[in-house]
Computed example of a mutant assay.
Amino acid sequence: MSSITIATLPRMSRDSLSALLSNSTPSKLAIIDVRDSDHIGGHIRSSIWVPTSSLDVRLPELLRTLKDTEKVVFHCALSQQRGPSAALRYARERERTFGEEEGKKQEVYVLEGGFVQWQEKYGKDERLTEAYVEDIWHEY
């Protein structure tokens, strides 16, 4: 059984992710957005949208396509439930599929504060955020 838990999944700050996005090649970093209908109004540039409801179906595809990616960052709106849960399922399935040693070659993170905190600082930055609609986020 896997030793990975929600508590042991590392968190990544929005500033660290911003720096990685600015300096990494796409093959080294993947951002997985597991928001559902709350995906409307913007997303982190280059992120892959995998609504929570489709994660089980898309997990084998993600494992294949992200096999050699160095860092994978999951997030939802606040990264309190859906993001950490998806990251945990992905990390455990990766370990189960490829073995514990291979599983550890990839770093899996949860974005601290999710898209809500991301958009507070980087929402208007078109280099980092796509399709941003400020009015949708104004209430946050």
Rank of each mutant, 00 (worst) to 15 (best):
E61K: 04
S53I: 05
V50F: 05
P51V: 07
R35D: 07
D36T: 05
S46Y: 10
V50M: 06
S54C: 09
E70K: 08
S46I: 05
I48M: 15
I44T: 08
H43T: 04
D56Y: 05
D36P: 02
L66P: 08
T52M: 15
K71C: 11
S53K: 05
S53A: 11
E70T: 10
L63F: 14
H43P: 03
V72D: 01
T69L: 05
R64G: 04
P51S: 13
G41C: 04
I48K: 09
V72F: 02
L55K: 02
S46W: 10
P60H: 08
S53H: 06
K71V: 11
R64C: 08
T69V: 13
G42L: 04
I40W: 15
V72K: 00
T52D: 15
V73A: 10
R35K: 07
G42I: 02
V73H: 10
K71D: 14
L62W: 07
K71R: 11
V57G: 07
D56V: 01
V57R: 10
D56K: 02
H43R: 13
S53G: 06
E70R: 08
R64W: 15
V72T: 06
I48Y: 15
G41R: 04
D38F: 11
I44A: 13
R45W: 00
D36Y: 05
I48E: 15
R58P: 00
P60V: 09
H43A: 14
P60A: 07
V34C: 09
R45M: 09
S46D: 09
I40F: 15
H43S: 13
F74C: 02
H39F: 15
T69M: 04
S47T: 01
I48S: 13
I40E: 14
D38Y: 10
I44L: 10
L59N: 03
R58C: 06
P60T: 09
I44H: 08
T65W: 08
V73W: 13
S37I: 14
D56H: 04
L59Y: 13
D68N: 09
K71N: 12
S46P: 00
K71M: 12
